[in-house]
Design a protein around this nucleic acid. Structure first.
Lengths: 158, 158
DNA sequence: TATGGCCTTCGAGCGCACTCCAGGCAAGCC
DNA sequence: GGCTTGCCTGGAGTGCGCTCGAAGGCCATA
């Protein structure tokens, strides 16, 4: 954020709020049991994806109704929230599965879990730095095109 | 960077410097013609990828030696630098190809190019914000595990 | 009873961004 | 000439993260 010389941070345009759909997480009300379609609504993930997460061990087995249907609880939703965040960092699903396994193994994996999160944290910092770099490049190019549009087209830009 | 209460920024561990290979861009010396393998060394991309970029129109046709081998020039390297940055933003290759086409079409596409870059800039800001969010989550969890490791394991964390 | 809707499982398919292979040519060196 | 190295081409293959389809179960409402 601080590396951007050009362009004050104007209020999000409509196009902007489009690009980031309003958080599909209106979240629970007071219950602790949700059907898969409710979780779809909360998380924005597809039912297929939710079932797939369970199959690959990214989620522990979900409670079932007497008819065998999945009933997600608030802890499951919390977990999905974390998974969503980790996904944003670009962490491979396999690594998230690893973390999930550590959680299932119990408290004696605290150290390993911490290490994993710390490593992820470093990655995130690195990605943020990269993005700031990129932002600087974009700002230079945008400035160029803005200049050029204002009349005197001069040097050529990629 | 500013959202991190826990964990002082210790010197990168060896594992860390591994995860981010030192910039594979020692860049040119004084020439303006490079073989594909030199470009591989500069960019860290594979020769396969470089040829593929050309095939799909992400790079304009590269000069050839009298024997038909590719000879990249400094402008090509600059372009690859930009492509590398855009790639970091998660921009799809197809969009980059679109931008490349605009560049090839000439100066009358300045406005459209600018629009595209501005849109990308918004995306980048959004991603940075997401990553800061994620960082906050990671820091909370890391703090929890650090606490817990120091003796009193209490509440349970995901 | 039947219709619709949402659920189940298993397994195949898809889109993206590469990645690799087979087969071949040209140049340089012994 | 023979060998190696480096590059060429077109096209097939890979890995990831979903995404979808087929075939069927359960159950509420008409």
């Amino acid at each position: 954020m601080q590396t951007t010389p050009a362009a004050t941070e104007q209020a999000p345009t409509s196009a902007d709020s489009c690009s980031a759909p309003p958080p599909p997480h209106p979240r629970p009300d007071g219950r602790d049991s949700y059907t898969i379609s409710e979780v779809v609504a909360f998380t924005g993930l597809s039912a297929h994806t939710l079932r797939w997460y369970e199959r690959i061990g990214l989620m522990s087995h979900i409670d079932r109704s007497h008819t065998g249907q999945r009933r997600y609880n608030n802890r499951d939703l919390d977990w999905l929230g974390l998974v969503g965040k980790l996904r944003l960092t670009g962490m491979p699903v396999a690594d998230m599965v690893r973390y999930a396994e550590l959680v299932r193994e119990g408290e004696n994996t605290y150290d390993e879990r911490r290490d994993l999160l710390v490593a992820t944290r470093h990655d995130v910092l690195a990605r943020i730095a990269e993005l700031h770099d990129t932002l600087a490049v974009l700002d230079r190019k945008i400035a160029f095109y803005t200049e050029a549009g204002h009349g005197h087209a001069a040097e050529r830009a990629g």
